[in-house]
Nucleic acid binder design. Sequence first.
DNA 1: TTTATTTTACATCAAGTGTTGCATTATGCG
DNA 2: CGCATAATGCAACACTTGATGTAAAATAAA
Lengths: 195, 195
Amino acid sequence: MARPRKFDEDEALQKMVQVFWRHGFDATTTRMLEDATGIGVRGIANAFGDKEEIFLKVLGVYTQMARGVVTQVFDPPRLQAAQMLFQSLVQETDDPDDVTNCGCLMVNTVFELGRASPRVRDAVEAYRSMWREAFCKAAVADGVSDPDGRAEFLLGLLWGALSQIRLMGSTTAAAPMAQVAVETIEGWKRKQPDL
Amino acid sequence: MARPRKFDEDEALQKMVQVFWRHGFDATTTRMLEDATGIGVRGIANAFGDKEEIFLKVLGVYTQMARGVVTQVFDPPRLQAAQMLFQSLVQETDDPDDVTNCGCLMVNTVFELGRASPRVRDAVEAYRSMWREAFCKAAVADGVSDPDGRAEFLLGLLWGALSQIRLMGSTTAAAPMAQVAVETIEGWKRKQPDL
DNA sequence: TTTATTTTACATCAAGTGTTGCATTATGCG
DNA sequence: CGCATAATGCAACACTTGATGTAAAATAAA
């Protein structure tokens, strides 16, 4: 009895993820969201709410995207998957139009918004927990001691590498860090062949 | 023949460094600079120029401050100095009022302004070069192979640690990264006792 | 067709911010 | 003492941006 929505909500959210990923929260204007989605700002507000609501939905979509990658790479959960992760991190293209060269939306978000919005902070913490648990399960599966500490360290190293990528605007900027990450994990495995 | 300036310019710049360090460029308003320095915005503009000019002067002061630390720690230039640097990085207080828990002004600046302003980018590059050269000289003095590559790696690790500090709002957040940095450097030295 | 909902366009509002003008007062040097 | 400059307070301006109101057009179900 009512007119259904013309555009695809998921598709529009994907587009907006790209915009926020590239420009951050403040620098993203409603006009940019209009251009990216092809929807007027009234239509966007009607479908998704105000800017903060949109951003939280974007963070949710981004987390879901990452969750897909995590479950795929860490199946089975092994430290080798973490090594592959760091290697693939720097094997992307240097194309400035490739949004992966903007680093990680979550890292950039914390840098920009700090600890201002509790809802944003919760979203970031959920994202970090996802990675932490994946690392921890991998450490447990490989029989490494102190899996919690190792996971925390890998999380820090991953965010450091993503920070480097953002700073330099290119994934290849993190190559040295990725290399030492792979070597360090390799050292863990060799020190504990079977426990 | 003219009235001299009442306030101390250097002191005012120091105060403004604190503000920009804590809040970044955009979030720093002219009112905050007034409150921090005790000078009206008209006086600030008269003495230092507009906001971008102020910020560039602030970046200069920040670099000079860091230069003092670098020349002190890397005298003589040795890799042990780099190790001490990483260790001292996480031995600060957790007091939220301590501005060192906000990370590095240069790292934060690149995150916020990206590659927007060429003058800012030049200032950041000068800052990075300072650290890179210090690391390189230390690597040369310790007879390590590929000092340029080692320096680049250490620079990346340092910025990654500073990113972690900013993200978590506490220097202790970078403790795991600092530890692996110290161990890695130790490994360099042991592999090449005398060349 | 009727109706309910969506979409769009245009305009406006409200808030924040950097900047500037102006008048006034203060201050140190010649 | 004058004078040139500095500092201050108040106000206004210009601009950006997010949000909102209103009205008209579009569209699919009843």
